[in-house]
């Protein structure tokens, strides 16, 4: 019912003895003290727990830690380049893309994953052209739809879109 699990978090291998029931989210928060990843609903309904799993955005609350052993997990704590924040982290501050800040790590991780999806040509539910294979041009409608898996109850959506637009455009 429990066992040793090697989690590769922010480039570092961490060995934990975990109950099989422990989610990646709780492993990060309760076992690794990486509390930047937030628990908002614990059921994949809010996006606050979003991390990057092998570079793709995922809800850490729905992942069993034991099932992601060995895969590369990147959390909000692992985004900065040394002392230099990630451009999206800077942009969220510049555009006041948050208020309480609780959804923010998930928003930022999600946005990084989203930019990679768009660059790979993945369409969204609002894309007029599904068949195109080029990188998607992210207008505001595209950003809004693609970021809708991250709820913000403070209603900072306008700032969030502006922050992502700035980074996507640059």
């Amino acid at each position: 019912m429990s066992g040793d699990v090697v989690l590769r978090v922010n480039g570092e291998d961490r060995v934990l003895h975990l109950d099989n029931r422990v989610t990646l989210l709780d492993a990060l928060r309760e076992h690794l003290r990486l509390t930047g990843t937030k628990k908002g609903c614990d059921h994949g309904q809010c996006g606050a727990c979003t991390v990057l799993l092998d570079g793709e955005r995922a809800n850490s609350c729905l992942l069993l830690a034991v099932a992601v052993a060995g895969r590369a997990v990147t959390t909000v704590e692992g985004l900065a380049d040394g002392a230099e924040p990630h451009p999206l982290q800077r942009a969220f501050i510049a555009h006041d893309g948050f208020q309480c800040g609780y959804c923010t790590p998930g928003q930022i991780c999600s946005a990084i994953g989203m930019l990679a999806e768009a660059a790979a040509g993945l369409p969204s539910a609002v894309s007029a052209d599904l068949a195109g294979t080029a990188a998607v041009d992210l207008d505001d409608e595209e950003i809004r739809e693609r970021m809708s898996g991250n709820l913000c109850r403070c209603g900072a959506y306008a700032g969030i879109v502006a922050a992502i637009r700035e980074v996507a455009g640059g």
Partner: peptide, 21 residues
């Protein structure tokens, strides 16, 4: 002025109640 705690919030350093060691 941008928020004093802005950097802590975007880097995950800001501690919320459940997160105190």
């Amino acid at each position: 002025l941008s928020r004093l705690e802005g950097r802590d919030k975007v880097t995950g350093a800001a501690l919320y109640a459940y997160e105190y060691p």
